[in-house]
Design a protein around this nucleic acid. Sequence first.
RNA 1: GGAGAGGUGGCUGAGCGGCUUAAAGCGGUGGGUUGCUAACCCAUUGUCUCGUUUUAGGCGGGACCCCGGGUUCGAAUCCCGGCCUCUCCGCCA
Length: 423
Amino acid sequence: MLDLNFIRNNAETVKKAILNKRENGRVDELLEVDSRKRSLLFECEQKRNRLNKTSKEISGLKKSKQDASELISDMKVLSQEIKEFEQKLRNVDHELNDIVIRIPNIPAEDVPVGLDESANLEIKKWGDRKEFNFTPKPHWEVGSTLDILDFDRGSKISGAGFVLYKGFGARLERALYNFMLDLHTTEHGYREIFPPYLVNRQSMFGTGQIPKLEDDMYQTREEDMFLIPTGEVPVTNIHRDEILSIDHLPICYTAFTACFRREAGAHGKDTRGMTRVHQFNKVELVKFTHPDTSYNELEALLINAEKVLQLLGLEYRILKLCTGDLSFASTKCYDIEVWAPGTKSYLEVSSCSNFEDFQARRSNIRFRDKDKKVKFVHTLNGSGLALPRTMIALLETYQLEDGTVAIPEVLQKYMGGVQKIEI
RNA sequence: GGAGAGGUGGCUGAGCGGCUUAAAGCGGUGGGUUGCUAACCCAUUGUCUCGUUUUAGGCGGGACCCCGGGUUCGAAUCCCGGCCUCUCCGCCA
């Protein structure tokens, strides 16, 4: 969420940001409620001041055994008044809060303004388009032929949008995330985390999934808990309500987690194969940084994520998202899209975002700066990478004419030396 | 799931209706002493927020002792509800 004081002083900037992001936000109403709240607060505090002072007087009178009954009956009235004010104040505060938490973060200066994905800026292409002397098949065909992906049984067990990995399919999945984790921990300096998959409401609020995306998540009935849609949620919340030492910044974590998404608004989209599924694995990168360095750290994070595809030898491009495609909480975001030759499309495998202090303010994650002041950290995250789409690109890129799939060299040691998946 | 104990500042820990503006210790910061370190001595030490003034920062008020309600002139302290932690029992991978 944004700083209320910032919104007061920069209402037009905020309105413009909302417009550019194609979000909703009631800024004028916010300002009105805010000023109503402050005048209530002022009045309430004055009454409270009088009450506090008089209570001390009563205490003194009682000690010297003097009569205080008049003051006490006065205070009885005042106390009741204060209760009424506090109730009003609580209501106004809720009203205010309800508006402010729904106002999106402001795009960074260098983010292109645009309505939708067509305005995204392609800023990099890596790798050569692989030549096939046959027509490359989509991954669902490759996977079914090799009996390493089983879509029918996945939906029998759980429903549409669930995949069963079998044999070397399961092994390849394991190889991929072990490879990614090893790379990020040993080469890129991230600390490995294995978090809970089920989190409470406050954690979901902290990273911004609640209230906007509440319906996209799986929720438990009895406990008011949510299955995480991304590792970002538990990992960012590690430091919720903490004051970090500046000496520890930046803190860099990587985590392998399953992710669960209802995809409620995406029925009929990408139904074939495993481009869009309800449960998938992902290796996440999360950073907590000093405000001065967050944009540099974003570039570094992007490079760390790219490295995975480079080592796997998969062609990809990088998009700088325009304002209209930017998520609610982010100020700037790069998407990495891997090329899938079988389905002939670019698939998003990572979104690397800076949230500045938006999540930190919601989750109350702070640090003590050199000037001894307590400030909010900046939080960042990106996938490094999402597994199913990486696997899609891998199967489709490394498929051979005879239906087998070659294993890239970096993965072979994770596959027990297997160089090729055969029938 | 049952029974009990408990949640207090960066940490340990006292307080259990007004003498708390939260003791004391540790730690941190500044200074002193000292050949250097250690030790010792002195001072200082939270967060949020409102108002006012502003160069920095002051000054005044309010809130905060897990969270939310309540009782009371007055709550860290009493009552109710919730969350979390620990111990024991039961169940279980």
